[in-house]
């Protein structure tokens, strides 16, 4: 654990950015978007992580201070839920657009999809 998992998360982010920027196939770009989004979600969860922490659910006969001392931070988890929903809608829109582009151009290759230039 420790620093290694952060490094791995950043490695995932870099892989996602590489797929987004360098790949020319629409499907691979969309996979890059998905990797990037999940890497950022992972980073958000890690921000709230606490070693040996428990689920942030208030048990019976437990004060909120006790919970706060032992549980992981629940706020990043709430943020991740929002982020997942946003990621889902972006991915769905990207797939829909890729399908329409395939209808128009007959290819998923960005090298052949270039009417716009200049």
């Amino acid at each position: 654990m420790g620093i290694a998992i952060y490094m791995m998360t950043f490695a995932l982010i870099v892989i996602g950015i590489y797929a987004l920027v360098a790949k020319k196939n629409l499907v691979r770009i969309i996979i890059g978007i998905a990797i990037l989004e999940y890497a950022v979600n992972l980073l958000l969860v890690l921000v709230g992580y606490k070693k040996g922490g428990m689920a942030p659910i208030l048990a019976e006969k437990q004060t909120s201070l006790e919970l706060a001392a032992r549980a992981v931070d629940p706020l990043p988890q709430a943020m991740v839920l929002t982020s997942i929903v946003i990621g889902l809608s972006v991915t769905a829109l990207a797939v829909a657009m890729a399908m329409r582009l395939y209808d128009k151009y007959g290819t998923f290759d960005m090298n052949d999809i270039r009417d716009l230039r200049g």
Binding site: M97, R100, L101, K104, I113, D115, L116
Partner: peptide, 9 residues
């Protein structure tokens, strides 16, 4: 249209 989809993507 094709150009609009390309730009949007």
């Amino acid at each position: 249209e094709s150009q609009e989809l390309e730009a949007a993507f």
